[in-house]
Design a binder for these strands. Structure first.
Length: 483
DNA sequence: GTAGGGTTAG
């Protein structure tokens, strides 16, 4: 028969290794062996199970603990309450709180903090305030965390005045004033209500203290972007970069979105490259959402973007490489585009349309006409018929190579209805004539387009880096464009 | 040689 102490140590060890099953079976085993658990065993188990949000098991052990005449500690109740709150099970949390009071254990500021925050998060402000009052009546003194939760509660229901009052109280009552979390909470309320100057005051306070964190910057960007103040949003983005706090995927997404909204496509693409290639961050849907916007704004045909989007949504293994190949090509970063192409073609396996198209586009954009045409041939050998995207890209390759006859051939197909008239294809043909120095023929296409699609229907093109560029009348060379 | 607790955005 082992000592209780030995069991307790082993249970703790299992807990630290997250082997809860083992801990529980050891708990059962010790009782069978005739070693009765003591307070420490129970406290330890409940806290460990609560910490992993295994509330049912924790609850069972807690009940057994009380039944056997042991008195759980404040931390034990507290951990279970916190666990219920994390799971959004507020009424269960309250039950434990009541049980705790009944057992004669006085709740501390952590218990109140959990409850108040839980109610604040679910927008139950009345309840949050009620517990705050009870806490004060109970002689438990509030702290930064509780007051921050209160601000959150008021924010949830848009009570600006009350939130301000709590915030001002923190300035007086707490030493050093509100901490970053509290300020951020207030900041997000300001952002929600579009209160720029009050937000800026708080932001500047944090700057002076040097305590801005990722959330501070994110909230300020969110505010400025929402108010259409893109210059200011970008300034915050720059400041965030310089401060070394731009490190995670979501923050990158947000900063990228600011640049994209401001039309700084190339800068945005650089950030994307940094997060993907240099930092090797894993990308999420938000990243790709911005990338697809970039592609469209960068002049990639709508159908091509949709095709890449579909490949991404279907989880195609080469989707990311195809997307980056297309993006880097569209933004003029050809060396990087070539790297992506190599990823796509490395395994010599037959590809799908989206992948062949991306490779054709990338080679074409980089001026590797032979490789582009070779890829097209390979695609045909594999029995894949060119789709609308392939046609648009191919015509671009012909234009770039000065193969006017090739452009004319596709142009003819459209004119005589052998290829379905489509805006992207028209545009590709027109641009191809331009890059083959046949303005005259480009103008013909332009006229045909205005007939086919009714004048003024054409979407806008934004060019790289957000520089303004008249698309139609400018006689300057457009060689630098993708096509 | 014993006892995992609460705060801030998209």
């Amino acid at each position: 028969m082992n000592d209780v102490l030995v069991y307790n140590v082993m249970i703790k060890a299992y807990g630290m290794a997250k082997l809860h099953e083992k801990a529980l079976s050891l708990f059962k085993g010790m009782k069978n062996q005739g070693t009765w658990p003591d307070e420490c065993t129970y406290n330890s188990l409940v806290q460990m199970l609560s910490g992993s949000d295994l509330v049912d098991e924790a609850q069972r052990v807690l009940s057994e603990m009380v039944d056997s005449g042991c008195k759980p500690g404040c931390k034990t109740f507290s951990s279970l309450i916190a666990s219920y709150v994390r799971l959004g099970l507020l009424s269960e949390a309250v039950d434990v709180y009541e049980e705790m009071r009944k057992a004669g254990v006085k709740p501390n500021e952590v218990v109140y903090g959990s409850l108040i925050n839980g109610f604040a998060e679910s927008g139950m402000v009345e309840e949050a305030i009620q517990y705050f009052k009870t806490m004060e009546e109970d002689g438990v003194k509030s702290n930064q965390i509780v007051l921050t939760s209160l601000i959150k509660a008021y924010s949830k229901v848009g009570c600006l005045e009350e939130a301000r009052r709590v915030y001002d109280r923190m300035k007086k009552d707490t030493e050093g004033g509100p901490d970053v979390a509290a300020s951020n909470s207030m900041l997000s309320l300001c952002a929600e209500l579009g209160m720029v100057s009050e937000a800026e005051t708080i932001f500047n306070d944090l700057r002076e203290k040097g305590t801005c964190d990722v959330i501070t910057f994110a909230t300020m960007m969110y505010l400025y972007k929402g108010m259409g103040m893109l210059d200011e949003a970008i300034e915050v983005a720059e400041e965030m970069r310089e401060s070394g706090l731009l490190n995670d995927c979501v923050s990158f997404n947000q900063v990228m979105a600011c640049y994209a909204a401001d039309g700084q496509l190339r800068e945005c693409c650089e950030l994307f490259r940094e997060m993907l290639v240099e930092r090797k961050l894993s990308l999420d849907w938000g990243t790709f959402k911005t990338v697809f916007t970039l592609l469209k704004k960068g002049g990639v045909p709508r159908e091509a973007v949709e095709q890449l989007q579909a490949a991404y949504n279907e989880g195609k293994p080469l989707a990311t490489s195809a997307i980056t190949a297309t993006l880097f090509s569209a933004m003029g970063l050809y060396a990087y585009a070539m790297d992506s192409c190599k990823e796509i073609t490395r395994d010599e396996i037959p590809l799908e349309h989206y992948a062949y198209n991306a490779v054709i586009y990338a080679y074409g954009a980089s001026g590797e006409v032979d490789m582009a045409l070779k890829t097209y041939m390979r695609m045909q050998e594999k029995g894949l018929k060119p789709d609308i995207v392939t046609q648009a890209y191919l015509v671009g390759v012909y234009g770039k190579a000065g193969m006017v006859e090739g452009v004319k051939r596709v142009h003819g197909w459209i004119t005589f209805g052998e290829l379905e008239a489509n805006q992207s294809l028209f545009r590709a043909v027109r641009d191809a004539y331009v890059s083959a120095n046949r303005r005259d023929l480009a103008d013909v296409v332009k006229k045909e387009m205005s007939i086919a699609f009714e004048d003024g229907q054409e979407e806008e093109f934004s060019s790289i880096s957000g520089e303004e560029e008249e698309e139609d009348d400018d006689d300057e060379s457009e060689e630098d464009e993708a096509f």
